[in-house]
Design a protein around this nucleic acid. Structure first.
Lengths: 137, 137
DNA sequence: CTAAAGGCTGACCTGGGCGTCAAGGTCAAA
DNA sequence: TTTGACCTTGACGCCCAGGTCAGCCTTTAG
């Protein structure tokens, strides 16, 4: 799979793919002519990278994520126990971000329904109802 | 409340507060000496702004959020019906972001538990269990 | 053979969210 | 009155995630 195909398949630009590689997030093979060669799993991987980057994580953060998410193949995990701690921390970060966004969402929904905010001022709602809706619908 | 106090109270820098104002996210009063004057609700507002910015939204995005979240006072909402549509769109964006992050979190948890991924390749998990954990909890 | 399409590296540019001076005004305490 | 903390605007700088252009090589189509 050449870089242009991967770009189209994963919805990012060729430039972004080269950037991700430069940041150590991708390590494609090289053909004899110097062209980058990606396998099919790279599509998932790139989507996950983009997903994290567009949610406020940095390339450095993503580096911490990927060792155990490599190419979306979770079965690789037992081979990388040293990063368990790092992954656990990342899960906590995600929990926090999710809770924050859910709180904002709840406030917007309250706003739309015209209800007052049942919370003490000084911060955004912390304890919120379970997340039940599915994306896009 | 002066800008330095607000900065300490809300956990951002003075520079950031001036930047938010420049971006149209804050409109403090001005004292006779030219000093910015904030009221207590600005603390919540600033925290919300920072929260959104650190989650991958731009100042422009935040501008769309704030008309109905002003100072965290949701009771102001009925006064701004024209932005209902914009807020609704933002809720959808939040739902999507939350779902994405929850999917990543689920994959990390699967990785930690060593389970295989029960999903078709090509994208991150889309339908995920309800969000049940509380932040830092 | 030639043109078009795609790939390569290197390098400079951009926009967003600030950090960091610079030069100066204001205010409370000593 | 002087010091020091805090405020003002303005301007330049930085990092990050790429965009864009230049100059060149490779592969496929006609």
């Amino acid at each position: 799979m050449l870089i242009g195909e991967l770009a189209r398949a994963s919805g990012v630009t060729v430039r972004a793919l080269r950037y991700y590689e430069q940041q150590g997030l991708l390590q494609p093979e090289r053909a004899a002519n110097g062209y980058r060669q990606y396998d099919g799993r790279a599509v998932t991987k790139v989507r996950n990278i983009q997903l994290l980057l567009s949610n406020g994580f940095t390339a450095q953060d993503v580096r911490d994520f990927l060792p155990c998410l490599d190419d979306g193949d979770v079965s690789l995990v037992p081979a990388c126990p040293p990063s368990v701690e790092a992954v656990t921390r990342k899960v906590a970060v995600l929990e926090e971000r999710i809770a924050e966004l859910a709180a904002v969402r709840d406030r917007l929904l309250q706003a739309l329904s015209g209800n007052p905010t049942p919370q003490q001022p000084g911060t955004v709602a912390r304890r919120h109802p379970a997340y039940t809706r599915t994306a896009r619908g």
